[in-house]
């Protein structure tokens, strides 16, 4: 579409966020994104993709492990775990708990991004 072609791989079990990270990490200039659904992974690239890049993309899709989380998913999981740790009565909160709460709040408000 509008100068983009698809590399199609039959695969139904992708973790889209992780796969997008992995494909972006290849550093291929022609890469425009990835779509999933209908039992297929479609990697969108501009035409004229060198064979080596094409092979690298197909290899990345083949070795993709959907059980592995993306960086953003790991951050979200850590945030959920931290919040779970704060679900207790106020007198039980330690100084570290309050630091954690402030860190989560600052990230939630966009003041200090979570690493």
């Amino acid at each position: 579409m509008d100068g983009v072609i698809d590399l199609v791989v039959e695969r139904a079990d992708a973790n889209p966020e992780r796969l997008a990270e992995e494909l972006a990490g290849l550093g291929i200039a022609a890469y425009r994104g990835v779509s999933t659904g209908g039992g297929r992974v479609r990697v969108h690239v501009t035409p004229g993709l060198p064979d080596a890049d094409r092979a690298a993309i197909r290899a990345a899709v083949a070795r993709h492990d959907p059980a592995r989380q993306s960086h953003q998913q790991q951050v979200a999981a850590a945030r959920r775990a931290a919040l779970d740790g704060l679900r207790k009565a106020w007198p039980e909160w330690t100084g570290a708990d309050k630091d954690t709460f402030l860190r989560l709040l600052a990230a939630e408000w966009g003041l200090i991004p979570e690493e």
Binding site: M1, D2, G3, V4, D6, A12, P16, A20, R32, G33, V34, S35, T36, G37, G38, R42, H44
Partner: peptide, 19 residues
């Protein structure tokens, strides 16, 4: 689709050009 469709494509692409 028995699951969600996803994309992060920066260019307009079909969601599912078959179904």
């Amino acid at each position: 689709n028995a699951g969600a469709y996803t994309t992060n494509s920066s260019t307009l692409v079909p969601v599912d050009d078959v179904n």
